[in-house]
């Protein structure tokens, strides 16, 4: 093979470079290395474009006025294009939730941990079953609430209690409590 960048005699190269590394090996490693890093860097936009876009993220908080919801009533709102359940618990429902031995739960959490201090009657959760994402029943008037009086998912039969904790069926976790804060006594900002 013709050699155009210098001598091919290893002895001569070793002599001139002093290290025993041929110039070509160095160039080869540097070039392949740079191309590799460049190639991997190109993957970043290719992968990241699939993630939620700015406009989807911009819709990611919602405000709801709770004034009209009576104790024992619940409403469905929309948060991040998914159903959100807001429920005004009755004293009886709160007592039921607190009577449960937390250690016996699949996903142990107390009602207090799932609500805000002083607002224990407001149970705000996603309306998304933690099994495979169906919308459980029990928020709207007349829907079945399941054997634990909270929510019941018709898809594969998960039952949630009055603190929306998983009690029976295939779902692994309690209904998710999103991040939220009370901006006034009756208005919550979710997300």
């Amino acid at each position: 093979m013709a050699d155009t960048t210098g001598t091919a005699d290893p002895a001569v190269i070793a002599g001139t470079e002093g290290e025993g590394i041929r110039r070509r090996d160095f160039i080869n490693i540097a070039a392949v290395g740079a191309a590799g890093v460049g190639g991997i860097a190109t993957l970043v936009p290719l992968i990241s474009q699939m993630a939620p876009s700015k406009d989807v993220l911009a819709e990611s908080s919602t405000e709801v006025d709770l004034a009209a919801i009576q104790p024992g009533q619940a409403i469905k709102a929309i948060f991040r294009k998914q159903p959100l359940f807001i429920r005004n618990l009755t004293a009886k429902e709160i007592a039921e939730a607190n009577a449960v031995d937390v250690a016996s739960l699949r996903d142990p959490q107390t009602l207090d941990e799932r609500t805000k201090p002083g607002k224990e009657n407001w149970l705000i959760t996603m309306g998304v079953c933690t099994h495979l994402g169906c919308v459980p029943l029990g928020a709207a008037e007349g829907e079945v609430k399941g054997e634990f009086g909270g929510y019941f998912c018709p898809c594969h039969g998960s039952s949630y209690d009055t603190a929306a904790r998983i009690r029976k069926g295939p779902a692994p976790k309690n209904l998710e409590v999103p991040e939220y804060e009370f901006t006034s006594d009756t208005v919550v900002k979710i997300g």
Partner: peptide, 17 residues
């Protein structure tokens, strides 16, 4: 899951891809 859907639930982004 959010990466696959391009959102929090199936929507326009998911339908398009």
């Amino acid at each position: 899951q959010q990466w696959l859907l391009g959102g929090f639930a199936p929507d326009n982004a998911a339908l398009n891809r």
